[in-house]
């Protein structure tokens, strides 16, 4: 189950190419860091991998097959701001059930307390909401997880808590992880290898 991006090129409208000819692979169970100076389209590249945007050039394949456009996407993206990633009018229980219902073990691992399920998003802190976003993405068993500045807005303790849980799950499921972060030390701590996003 290898995720492979070949010759990816993208630009908005008629603007300049953000990147062209980008090649990138992630193997199952591998944790890869992705760096680039700001404004070079890291986030856009992540969105392409997770199916939010279509690449204008090149192809994304999993195990040699194109990624299905309908149904649950096997590459799930976690955003930087969890407040924007949940519907403010839904209770957390419903937010979670948007994917497949995560098993209690997963919730436990992420430190999600039962009592939080009956709350509204604005009653939870950013760290608590981000745990839900991770649980929602992992509930349906994606093959790959992209963490785009996933813990940038969180304090060190919460950051470590969430990463511990994610790493443990990744190990168990042989899930690949792509990490985008400006924090070099976090990347060093977590990644098997770090690649720079650049056009060839």
């Amino acid at each position: 189950m290898q995720l492979e991006a070949k010759n990816i090129g993208f630009r908005y409208g008629d603007g300049p190419w953000l990147f062209q000819g980008v090649n990138f692979t992630v193997k199952p169970g591998e944790i890869v860091g992705l760096t680039a100076p700001s404004g070079r389209g890291k986030t856009t590249f992540c969105r392409i991998l997770a199916g939010y945007e279509k690449p204008l050039e090149g192809s994304i394949t999993i195990e040699g097959l194109p990624v299905p456009t309908r149904g649950f996407h096997p590459v799930q993206l976690i955003f930087q701001h969890p407040e924007k990633a949940v519907n403010p009018r839904w209770k957390m229980e419903k937010v979670l059930s948007e994917g497949e219902k995560p098993d209690p073990e997963l919730l436990d691992l992420l430190g999600i307390e039962q009592e939080w399920l009956t709350r509204w998003p604005n009653e939870l802190s950013g760290g608590e909401l981000q745990r839900f976003c991770v649980a929602r993405a992992l509930g349906s068993n994606p093959h790959f997880l992209i963490a785009d500045e996933m813990t940038t807005m969180l304090d060190a303790i919460t950051q470590a808590q969430i990463w511990y849980a994610v790493l443990e799950i990744a190990k168990k499921r042989k899930m690949g992880i792509i990490i985008v972060s400006h924090e070099e030390k976090l990347m060093q701590r977590l990644c098997h290898r770090v690649v720079e996003l650049k056009s060839f």
């Binding site: 760290g127 304090d155 060190a156 919460t158 470590a160 030390k185 977590l190």
Partner: peptide
């Protein structure tokens, strides 16, 4: 101390629980 130890450049070990509401 816990906050300091949880930094990735230090031990990266979190304490359990979360800040009370």
């Amino acid at each position: 101390k816990a906050l300091w130890r949880a930094l990735p450049q230090n031990e990266f070990i979190p304490i359990p629980g979360s800040q009370p509401r």
